[in-house]
Every structure is written in C-alpha cells, then in structure tokens.
Design a protein around this nucleic acid. Sequence first.
DNA 1: AATGTAGTCAACCGCAGGCAT
DNA 2: CATGCCTGCGGTTGACTACAT
Length: 267
Amino acid sequence: MEGPLVWGRQEEVDGWRKGPWTSQEDKLLVNHVRQHGEGRWNSVSKLAGLKRSGKSCRLRWVNYLRPDLKREKITPQEESIIVQLHALWGNRWSTIARRLPGRTDNEIKNYWRTHFKKGKPSKNIERARARFLKQRQEMMQQQQQSLGQLDEDGDQPRGTCTGTTADDDDRGSATGDACAAPTTTVATEAGADLIMHDDAMVDCFMCPMSCDDLLVLHGAAGGQGGGTGSCCGSTASDEYGSSEEDCGATWGSLWNLDGAGEVCTLW
DNA sequence: AATGTAGTCAACCGCAGGCAT
DNA sequence: CATGCCTGCGGTTGACTACAT
C-alpha cells in the first residue's frame, strides 16, 4: 500500500505509536528486516527507529510487508483448500495459512468470517464437516488395518508419511509423492460429493500438517488435464474459470448443497 | 443525491507456549 | 524449579468501500 491510510487516527500510548502504518514506517521496517532478518521484534523499535511495539512490527511484516505475499483475491481452489482444512482443523488459521503460500492467517480468517461464518452455510458446513470427519475416521481405521497387514509384508503403505517436514508442529510428517492416484468420493451434503485424490485423502487424514498434501491436492486440481502437482497457488487462477464452469459450482454452491445432488470434482 | 447496510481488511488485544536465565 | 520475556495465535474491533434503498 502506498502512503498512509487515512482511516483511523494515530495514537501514542506509552511511547508506542498505534494505528495505521505510514509508508515511512513501512520502509523502516522493511529495511530493518532486510538487514537483520525476521525475529527479535522487540528490538526492532530501537534498531529501526520505529515507535512501534514488537508485536505491531511483527504483525505488519507478516500480514502486509512480507515480499512473498499474494495480493490477488483468493481463488476457488484456495477456497476449497481453506474449507477442507477448516473442516479438519477448525479455526487454526495459521496452520491453514501455512498450506497456502502467500496467504496470511489474518487474510484467511477474514475471508472465512466474511464468506462462511455468517449466513446460510453454517449448518451445511457443520454437517459436511461432521461427515468429513467421520469419513476420516474410517479412513484412519482402514489405514491402521492395512498397516498391520503391510507390517507382515514388510512393505510400505501408500499414503503414509515417508518424509518429515521440518516446518511445523508436532503433527506430522509428510508424504512424498502422490502421482497417479485414483480419486475418492467424499460425500458431503445432500448428495453432493467432493472427489479427492486417494493419496491426498490419506495424507490429509494421516498427516494433516504436511505441505505436500496440498501439492497432491493441487495436482488433482490442476489435474483436469492430468497434471501431477503444480504447487499450491502457482497457477490456480488459470484454472479458475474453466473449472468453475465445468462443475457448475464453486464455492457458493458447494455449500449450498441442499437439493443439489451434483457431483463436483473440486480438485 | 442522501442515507443505510453489508462487506472488506488492517490492526489491536489478550492469552498461551516456548525458551532463556 | 520459578520467573520473566518473546513470539505466535485466535478473536475482535473499527474504519473505509461498495452496493442497495
């Protein structure tokens, strides 16, 4: 954003400035991060000459100044991911955001609140979520069974975690590759189905924190042409229109499933 | 044209967990 | 082990914008 926002008034509390950032402050912060890297936010004020709290600096950087942030609107593919992940993890926005490169937790949180929180979808979301989780549980049980079998075979089960991503909580490790996987139909609400990659399903269920999960998912998504895994957010916008038209349902109708009875391949 | 309302987004607040001392 | 500091997260607020009446 160029120039200071006009909204809000600048305040100063306990020596800390509050309210909207000015372009001058942005420059100072960006220069500081370039020189010193991220972190140590509490020292930023001293080092960069900003009268901002460490918290405020961090927030400004993470939500606005980071160079890798996307500026475009959230695509239907991203929406789909958000909703699936929200079904899995609930309001863990930062966790969800990590699966969407260039998006921030704040952005996703705002998006969710704007689009899904209030109004019609809530009931459907809850019901679909319940169903989704139930399906997940079944998958996990199946997984465990097959794990038992494979132990005897000495083989490695598909969709299990073979690698470890360093990036995240304690939750998991990542699967590697998920090419050429068949699809699984996940029943949502009122007969509408999400067709998912089998491996993606398994990965999602077993290793929810893996970034590769979404590579997998996107592979299936872009995969209308049979692609195998463009990375998250890379070219999603291109598929936007066509996939929307093809399945006749993007987001609104995804959750507006009552009486829909349609099958839509989301990814 | 004026007013009201909903949507959007940046920013703040409080809390919790991790880590160093 | 206890304490304090730092960082990150989720919830919430408030101002602007767009659209409807």
